[in-house]
Write a protein that binds this DNA or RNA. Structure first.
Lengths: 200, 200
DNA sequence: CTAATAAGATGACATTTGTCACCTGATTTT
DNA sequence: AAAATCAGGTGACAAATGTCATCTTATTAG
């Protein structure tokens, strides 16, 4: 019997997945969570065989949870289950060493299969991910990401300045560099591009 | 027996909802679609009692489908089932006269109940929506929305100018007005605000 | 030890952006 | 018919943005 934990912030999908997987004779859902923090504490306590983990969740995101589980060498295997194939997410997940990365755009039947494969020691990845543009690495440094994140909210150079304790010239230099890297023509387009790719 | 149609572009949720609702003894799922266009043609042909409809779908979005169904006075009742409570969406849905508007953040159990209520002639709305900020109307005129949509992609004033055949002064006047209405301090912040509210 | 890098800063400059007051023709209202 | 409204437009101005070459100071690598 495979014990499962599901972390997913969309209640309806959480409920639906839970009910359906529980119908499989060799699986049992032993816990659920609607956000990353709950998920982390419950998983550490329950030690399920496999965790299905959404990425975009409140408080702690799924990748952060997976990272923390790895750091504490928790025994549970993690399968990331997410909507979009943002390059940055996939890249990070692979680095963390998750056991699977599936898209919510796949069939549910594939999900149960994937769980069994992971239990058998294999790793499973949605085929859409393995090739493709998806593998593009995030070209932005952490500082650049931080600055672009703020710029994307419409913060002015001056506001960024005082949040990050940098001179205004420096901030503008960073933004200039970001614009170059993303082949954009201004900070707004840079934000749009990076947003779509999951780089900020 | 209530006949159902489900339109939802996230394959996993579509499958999960289909399977679960089919388990209800008084319901039968007679069709599914992954995008708005398929949904529209299938619904017109199959005439299900109730359609569950996601909003953000490829080709045609759920609100557009609902609108078209209403225009052709199709007999099927529509329940919008969406992730976020964007004010603009809800406002539009109500104007179209849909029979229900539920958030994917609700429990699945509520869904089956809602379907039965709608069949009984009632209208159902997620309680989160009925009060709240959600009722904020979109303060932007269609032209303003169009301009802000372009600005949000990082297009410059000059580019917007040549896409919409307006003078650059006019575009800047519009943007200035938009910034005022949204209480932002520049076009980027205006785009962030409007995006979050579902106004563009 | 010395050279190479990286993070941050300056200053100067051309553009772009945002603001505002006011103008012009249509189209509605009254 | 006169007045109001609406979509667009001008022009002028200050401020913000983007670009570049150059500089300083640590830190790191050879």
């Amino acid at each position: 019997m495979i014990s499962l934990f599901i972390a997913e912030d969309q209640r309806m999908l959480l409920g639906a997945l839970g009910s359906l997987l529980d119908l499989e004779q060799d699986m049992k859902v032993i816990g659920q969570a609607l956000n990353g923090e709950e998920a982390l504490t419950s998983i550490l306590k329950l030690e399920p065989d496999v965790c299905l983990m959404d990425i975009e969740m409140p408080v702690l995101n799924g990748l952060e949870v997976a990272e923390e589980l790895a750091r504490r060498s928790a025994p549970s295997k993690v399968i990331i289950l997410t909507t979009f194939a943002r390059p940055g997410y996939f890249e990070r997940a692979v680095k963390i060493g998750v056991h699977g990365y599936l898209l919510k755009d796949g069939e549910i039947d594939e999900l149960a299969d994937a769980i069994r494969k992971v239990m058998a020691g294999k790793r499973v990845f949605s085929p859409e991910l393995t090739f493709d543009v998806i593998r593009e690495e995030n070209p932005l440094t952490p500082k650049e990401q931080e600055i672009l994140r703020l710029a994307a909210l419409g913060k002015t150079t001056k506001e960024i300045t005082s949040e990050l304790y940098l001179s205004s010239g420096t901030v503008r230099n960073y933004i200039s560099e970001i614009i170059h890297k993303l082949d954009a023509k201004n900070r707004t387009e840079a934000a749009a591009i990076a947003g779509k790719k999951g780089w900020i």
